[in-house]
Design a binder for these strands. Structure first.
Lengths: 287, 287
DNA sequence: GTCAGTCCAATGGACAGACCATTGATGCAT
DNA sequence: ATGCATCAATGGTCTGTCCATTGGACTGAC
């Protein structure tokens, strides 16, 4: 096992200088109390696991840790770094949540470097949305705008196989019973936008589009929005415009649709808020 | 303290049914080549801390946990959920990394619900970039395109105070000695783009722009790129265009600049790769 | 009464040691 | 060879302990 990618490199003990502290005493560096200094440093005592994460990320950015590599075992890592296993576990947990490493049990198990997880962007934006930092209005607007970029690139870079996949996707929509579950329609739509994002041939845009689409479609699913009767016609036109590389028409078609959806969602949000207020009032009077 | 927001969890023993939920399995890479069986078990035994995270997120999405609320203390939570404190800690660590909760020490400390953390999007994309899932070419292209959107909105929505801030920012750039540290120039540039992103009045675009800008500027800083002699003139023109709401000129000015930067960075990446190859060859011959 | 200082309990941060379940390799018996 | 039992490595979890920090309660001097 080519163990050259250990966190601190060099096998025995961590004779390296950089992180040569933190071993005997936990007090770290109580630098405070310097009254005479005009410039107060933001002391910010770093937690142990954060430092471990940084080391991993450093080696990652430097290229010495690459996808597929395996980190030392938890116990070994803890010994090398001179920290407890719990601290190592919290660091690994953090990296795992970040999609940087994957943990596997059993013999020959361990922490393996992954390639990152696009879903994390989605999750982060979704959290901000649910916690009220991002408004539905901003979200749908951004999606409309970004999809304009996507149409631009897609028209330039679309390939026949992707066109075929798009057409097949629209066909699937037609075979769906109009009274079918919303979740199925939403899944097909998600696939549709995913195909378009892939056509842009730009992974960054793909990630962004997937995030915004996922969140918006989740709202669509929850808002009991009615099935757009002309959705299929819209999709067919869109695919046609892309296939024939009519950029302006494609942009316009997409924008009109997304703006219509945006208005629908905003209306649904308003009525939902009203219902909530109603319920709150009813609850109040009942007390 | 109105402790109504407890994590649910009927008192002891987590005899809860083993999950049931969990969408079509996520990471789930450990699945091996099941050739014969079309669909079988994506079961993936859930870990304790994951269930705790889900409970918190559920209450969050349902609105019963809102920013500012405080979760029970670690020990209390552990007792209520019938798990060890270590498991609770890992769950809180996970949520903290996700920017959902913040931990505070001391009396009256605890885990507080936050509003989400925009930096997480940056971190996720940065990880994917460093791990090779995103190319520098894609990154710079996406940034160029997204900034076009930003110029559009900024020209429509810019306010006098922001114009003033932008002008002040450019002034700061002029007062910087040309031989100054790259990190300072980069910091000022980051502020410049941050101001523009704020002018769009769309938090989603703000988050995206901040992420892409941070990552690209970090590359600029590391690539020892020379100071663009006409950078200041470019910035002044840009601010002027925005202030006078000349959308097309603003877009063009921004795009030209970013494309120039893009070519610079791509060149730097190539030479860096060559150097790396050279070093590798030298190392090889030395053995 | 007010203010300063002290003390204390609550809380997160970290550590140590242990046990269990899973997993893949190893070796033995067939 | 093949199949099965065993074993060691590893992550997952638990229990228990100690420390540093923090804010409030308490105390005492003025």
């Amino acid at each position: 096992m080519t163990r050259k990618t250990t966190i601190v490199a060099t096998t025995p003990a961590r004779a390296r200088k950089p992180a040569a502290r933190r071993l005997p005493a936990k007090t770290a560096e109580p630098v405070a109390k310097e009254k005479s200094q005009p410039r107060f440093a933001p002391i910010r005592t770093k937690r142990v696991f954060e430092e471990i994460c940084e080391q991993v990320r450093r080696e990652m950015a430097a290229g010495s840790l690459r996808p597929g590599d395996k980190l030392p075992a938890e116990r070994e890592l803890a010994a090398k770094l001179g920290v407890s296993r719990a601290a190592v576990r919290e660091a690994l947990r953090s990296l795992e949540i970040a999609g940087v490493v994957g943990l596997q049990k059993g013999a020959r198990g361990g922490a393996f470097i992954l390639k990152g997880d696009p879903d994390l962007v989605t999750q982060s934006i979704r959290d901000m949305f649910h916690l009220g930092r991002i408004s539905l209005d901003n979200l749908t607007e951004a999606r409309t705008l970004v999809m304009q970029l996507a149409m631009q690139l897609a028209c330039e870079r679309i390939r026949p196989t992707t066109v075929a996949a798009l057409e097949k996707n629209v066909d699937r929509l037609t075979t769906l019973p109009p009274s079918g579950k919303a979740s199925e329609r939403v899944a097909i739509s998600a696939e549709f936008y995913r195909l378009i994002s892939q056509a842009t041939d730009n992974t960054v845009l793909q990630v962004i589009i997937e995030a915004l689409t996922d969140i918006v479609l989740q709202q669509v699913e929850q808002s009991n929005i009615e099935f757009f009767p002309n959705l299929i016609a819209h999709r067919r036109r869109l695919v046609e415009y892309i296939a024939t590389r009519q950029v302006d028409e494609a942009k316009r078609e997409m924008t009109e649709h997304l703006q219509r959806l945006r208005r629908h969602l905003m209306r649904a949000e308003r009525t939902a808020a009203e219902n909530k207020t109603m319920r709150a009032l009813a609850e109040e009077t009942s007390q």
